[in-house]
Design a protein around this nucleic acid. Structure first.
Lengths: 330, 330
DNA sequence: CTGTTAGCGCCTTCAG
DNA sequence: CTGAAGGCGCTAACAG
C-alpha cells in the first residue's frame, strides 16, 4: 500500500500522487480528487513518514530515556515539570520529544538503538543502568539529568551535595535528635530505617549526593552521623513519607529536626510529626513555605529546558552540575 | 557522513561497516576496530535512524498532540498522569511516545503532517482547533481525550455532564447561594465572574459538559442558573482558583455551596472560604477527601493507557465517552 | 499542470 | 567472515 499503488490506481504518476498529499495546491482539483478517491478505495493511510524522513533528512526529535522508573516519573509532579520544560524547548525549536520505551528488560537496548531521535536526555539513574551503555553506543549526543556523571555526556542538575549540606545546617542548627527521610538508595527500592548509612554505597547519584551533604552537615554541627536514623522510602510520594515519619518517630520519639528529599515528603512528615519539628525539603514549593518548611528551591522546568537546549545543540553543556538553587528558610 | 564514507575510509564494504554497528558479533574483531577507528576519525555519529526505519519498516511511535496549552499540561498533575498512563502502555508495546511540537502557530500543521508516528492522541481541545484538521489529513488513527467528538476519531473520557450533575446535586443539596469555579470557557482564557453563562457557547468540550451538568443540577434543585455566579479561571492552578474564590465571595458573601472543576481548585477555594462551605471538585484526590470535599473520582492514568491502547490498535475505540467515574461524597 | 529521473542511508539476501 | 546487488517509500529538481 504505497504511493505507487495509489498513483497506478488513479492513472497518474507517482509524483502527482505525492503532491496530492504534500502540496495539494500544486495539483489540479480534478486530478487531486481522482487520487484521493483511489486512496480511499485502497485504504491508503497517507504518505509513510519514514520514506519522507529519509528523503528530507532529519528526524527533528529528542529522545527522553526514563529508565526503569517510567511508571513513577509522571506521578512525581516535579519530574513531570522537568518533562514540561523539555517539551516547551523542543516545541520552540520545532522538535518532537520522544519518550523511549523502557521497561528494565532486555529489549530496552534495542529500543534505544533504533530510536528515531537526534539526541538523548536521560533522567536520573544509577551508574550501572544498562541504558547508559545503550545510549553511548548510539554515538549521539546525550545529556544526563541529576546523574550519574558519564564521560562524554553533559550533566544538568544542581550541586545536590552543597544544597543538602546547607539545608541540613539550617534545619539541624539546634537539633539534638536529627533524622532523615530519603529516596531509595538502590534499584531494589527497599524501604526501612537504617543508621550509619554510607552515602558512597548509594547507587542513585542525586540521593547519594544529598546524603553526603547531610553527612557533612552532621559533622560540621558535631552530630554523630552513625546515630542519625535514615528512613528510606520506595518512591517520592506522600504515603511512603508518612510511613517513614512514623518509623522515625518510633525510632526517635524526641526527633527535633528532619531533612527530607522533597517538599512532598516533608509535608507528609509534618502531618505526622506536627508543626513544631523543624523540617527541610527540596523543590521550594509554595505550600512548603506556607507551612514553615525550609526548602532548597530549584526549577525543574528550567533544568528540563536547559537539558533540551544542550541536547539540541543550541547551547553547549558542561560535565558538571551548574544549575542554580537557593535555600528558602522557614 | 554516511556508512558508505566510513566503509570507504576503513577499506571495507558498506555492509561490513553496517554490521559493525548493528551486529558487531558478525564482524571480525580486527575489522570492527578498523571500522570504528575510521568512524571516530570522520566523526560518524552512528547509523542514521531514518535509513534504518525505512528499510526495516515501522515507526513504532505514538504521537501526542497537546495543542496550544503545552506549557500548562505538565503543570497540571492530572494531565501529567494521563501522559504517564500513555507512556506505560506504549512501553509495554515497545512503542515510543512522541510529543508533537505545537505552539498555536501555523507551523503546527506541518509538524503534525510530518510527524514520525503511527497514530495520534489529542489532548482535550476546542472543536475549531486547526490541529484537528491537521491530524485528520494525515489519515492516521486518532483518539481524542475529553473532547471534542470528531467523526472518525475515537473518544476517551468520562461522561462529564452526568458526573458534574451528580456532583452539583450533592454539593448544592441544601444551598441557597450556590456558585461555580470554572476552567476557561474559550481559547482567550479570560478570567472573571459571570452569571447566566450559556454552556452551549463554551468551546472547550469538557468544560462545556461540566457546566451543562451544573446547569441541569440547578434546574433539578429549583435553583435559578442565571443568578449563579461562575468564576472563570485562566488555568487549572491554585492561585487562579484562590482569586476566583475571592471574587465569588465578593459577589456572593453568603455562598453556601461551590462546585469547581478540579480538586486543586476546590482545595484552594477552601483555603479562602473556610471549611464550612460545602465544596465539590474533580479527580478524587486523597487530599480532597481528607478535607471533606466531594469529588468525582476518575483515573487519568487509566484513561491515558486506554487512549494509547486504542491508538495502537490493541483495543477498538468508541465514538463516545465510556470511562468509569464515581462520586466520592464528603 | 504533470511526468521523469535520481537518489536519500540503510539492511536483507545471496554469493563468494 | 566479507562483498555485491537491490530496493524499502518517498520527494527535489528538472523537463515537458
Amino acid at each position: 500500500m504505497t504511493l505507487d499503488d495509489v498513483a497506478r490506481a488513479a492513472g497518474v504518476s507517482r509524483m502527482t500522487a505525492s503532491y496530492t498529499f504534500s502540496r495539494p495546491d500544486r495539483v489540479a482539483a480534478r486530478t487531486r480528487e481522482k487520487v484521493l478517491a483511489a486512496a480511499d478505495r485502497l485504504g491508503f493511510r497517507g504518505p509513510d513518514p519514514s520514506g519522507r524522513l529519509l528523503r528530507t533528512g532529519g528526524l527533528r526529535s529528542l529522545g527522553l530515556v526514563l529508565g526503569e522508573s517510567l511508571e513513577y516519573v509522571f506521578e512525581d509532579p516535579e519530574a513531570a515539570r522537568f518533562v514540561g520544560g523539555m517539551a516547551r524547548e523542543c516545541s520552540a525549536a520545532g522538535y518532537g520529544l520522544t519518550i523511549i520505551p523502557t521497561t528494565g528488560e532486555e529489549p530496552d537496548r534495542a529500543h534505544i538503538a533504533t530510536a528515531a531521535v537526534d539526541a538523548f536526555v536521560i533522567w536520573t539513574t544509577t551508574p550501572d543502568d544498562p541504558v547508559l551503555d545503550a545510549v553511548r553506543e548510539t554515538r549521539r549526543p546525550a545529556v544526563v539529568h541529576g546523574g550519574p556523571a558519564v564521560p562524554g555526556f553533559a550533566l544538568v542538575g544542581i550541586d545536590d551535595r552543597a544544597a543538602a549540606r546547607e539545608l541540613a545546617l539550617a534545619v539541624w542548627s539546634d537539633a539534638k535528635a536529627p533524622a532523615v527521610i530519603s529516596f531509595p538508595v538502590n534499584r531494589d527500592r527497599a524501604a526501612g530505617v537504617v543508621t550509619g548509612l554510607d552515602p558512597t554505597h548509594v547507587s542513585f547519584p542525586v540521593t547519594r549526593h544529598r546524603l553526603a551533604g547531610f553527612h557533612e552537615a552532621a559533622d560540621l554541627l558535631g552530630l554523630d552521623w552513625d546515630t542519625i536514623p535514615v528512613a528510606v522510602c520506595t518512591h517520592n510520594d506522600s504515603e511512603g513519607a508518612a510511613d517513614a515519619a512514623e518509623a522515625i518517630r518510633a525510632a526517635r520519639p524526641d526527633v527535633d529536626g528532619l531533612v527530607a528529599m522533597s517538599d512532598r515528603q516533608a509535608l507528609a512528615a509534618q502531618d505526622v510529626l506536627g508543626p513544631s519539628v523543624p523540617l527541610g525539603g527540596f523543590d521550594g514549593s509554595e505550600l512548603a513555605r506556607e507551612r514553615g518548611i525550609t526548602s532548597v528551591r530549584q526549577s525543574l522546568p528550567e533544568q528540563g529546558a536547559h537539558a533540551a537546549r544542550i541536547a539540541l545543540g543550541i547551547e553547549t553543556g558542561a560535565a558538571t552540575s551548574t544549575e542554580r538553587w537557593t535555600l528558602i528558610r522557614a
